[in-house]
C-alpha cells in the first residue's frame, strides 16, 4: 500500500507553521524512517495521517484515496499506529489487548468472535509471545510491551504501519529486536513509516529516509544517498561524520 503526503500545511495557533508544505511518498513493502529534530512536526504528521488533526492545506492519500473523507474504522483498516509506549488506565491481559487490534473489522456493537481470536493468536505467535497471553500488560517489561503493541498492530491487519519512536525507551538489545521486527514486517509486505532520532539505526535498517526540517521535506532517499556527512551536518546544524565499519554505517560528532 502506497502513502502519499501532498503539500501538508498545519499550524496549532494559526501563526507559527508546524508543517509548511510537507510532501513525500512511500512505496509498498518498504521500511521508511522519518528523521527530524524535536518539534520538527513528526508527531503532528502522524496525528494528521490518523485523522486526529486536520491539515489546513494539502492531503494525505493511501493508494490514491484521500484519507480526509474516511471515518475512523475505514482508516484503521488501512493504517495501524504503534505508539512509543502505552499506559492504559485499566490493565487488560495481553490477549485482550491484542484482540483490540481487530476492532475495526467488527461492528461497533459487537465483540470479537472466533475469527478475531484466531487473528490475535496468529499475531501473538508471529512475535513469539503466546506464553504472555494471560499476563496483565502492566506486569510486562518495556520490550515485551512493545511486542504486544506490534502484535496488536498485526492483528489490525492494516498494510501501513506507523511507529512513533519505537526504540527510544528500550535497552540496546531490545532496540535491535524491535528494528528487526519492523524489518521483517516490511518483508511480509507491510509498509512502515517510523519516526525516530537515531541516525545510525535509520541508516542501517531503513530502505528510505525522510529528513524533515522547518515543516518541510529537507531531503529524502536511500541510506546510501542520505549517508553524507555534509548533508547530515547541515540538517542537524551540527558537525557530523558518517563512516562505514564492516559494511555498517556509523555516525559520530565531528570536533
Amino acid at each position: 500500500m502506497s502513502l502519499a503526503v501532498n503539500d501538508i500545511h498545519f499550524s496549532y495557533d494559526g501563526r507559527r507553521p508546524v508543517l509548511d508544505g510537507l510532501s513525500f511518498s512511500l512505496e509498498d513493502g518498504t521500511f521508511n524512517v522519518m528523521l527530524g529534530r524535536n518539534g520538527a512536526g513528526k508527531t503532528t504528521l502522524f496525528r494528521i495521517i490518523l485523522g486526529i488533526l486536520k491539515a489546513q492545506e494539502g492531503c494525505v492519500s493511501v493508494n490514491g484515496a484521500d484519507l480526509a473523507g474516511m471515518g475512523a474504522r475505514e482508516r484503521a483498516r488501512r493504517i495501524a499506529y504503534i505508539p512509543q509506549e502505552s499506559h492504559p488506565s485499566f490493565s487488560y491481559s495481553v490477549l485482550t489487548t491484542v484482540l483490540m487490534g481487530t476492532s475495526a473489522s467488527i461492528s461497533t456493537l459487537a465483540s470479537p468472535g472466533v475469527a478475531e481470536m484466531k487473528r490475535a493468536q496468529d499475531a501473538l505467535e508471529r512475535f513469539s509471545i503466546s506464553h504472555l497471553a494471560h499476563r496483565r500488560v502492566d506486569s510486562l517489561s518495556g520490550g515485551e510491551r512493545q511486542l504486544v503493541l506490534c502484535a496488536r498492530a498485526l492483528a489490525q491487519d492494516a498494510p501501513l504501519l506507523l511507529f512513533d519512536e519505537p526504540t527510544s525507551k528500550l535497552d540496546w538489545a531490545n532496540q535491535v529486536h524491535s528494528l528487526d521486527n519492523i524489518k521483517s514486517l516490511t518483508s511480509d509486505g507491510h509498509t512502515a513509516l517510523v519516526a525516530m532520532h537515531d541516525i545510525v539505526q535509520a541508516l542501517n535498517w531503513a530502505d528510505n529516509i525522510i529528513l524533515i526540517k522547518d515543516g518541510r521535506t529537507w531531503a529524502e532517499g536511500s541510506p546510501d544517498k542520505v549517508a553524507d556527512s555534509d548533508l547530515l551536518s547541515g540538517f542537524y546544524s551540527t558537525p557530523i561524520k558518517v563512516g562505514r565499519l564492516d559494511g555498517q554505517y556509523i555516525c559520530m560528532p565531528r570536533h
Partner: peptide, 22 residues
C-alpha cells in the same frame, strides 16, 4: 452493547481512534 468499544477506549483516545473506534 458498547462493552467492546469501552474496552478499547481505556487505551486512550488516540489509540482507540487509531484502532477504529468512534
Amino acid at each position: 452493547c458498547l462493552r467492546w468499544p469501552l474496552n478499547v477506549l481505556s487505551q486512550g483516545d488516540e489509540e482507540a481512534h487509531s484502532l477504529g473506534i468512534p
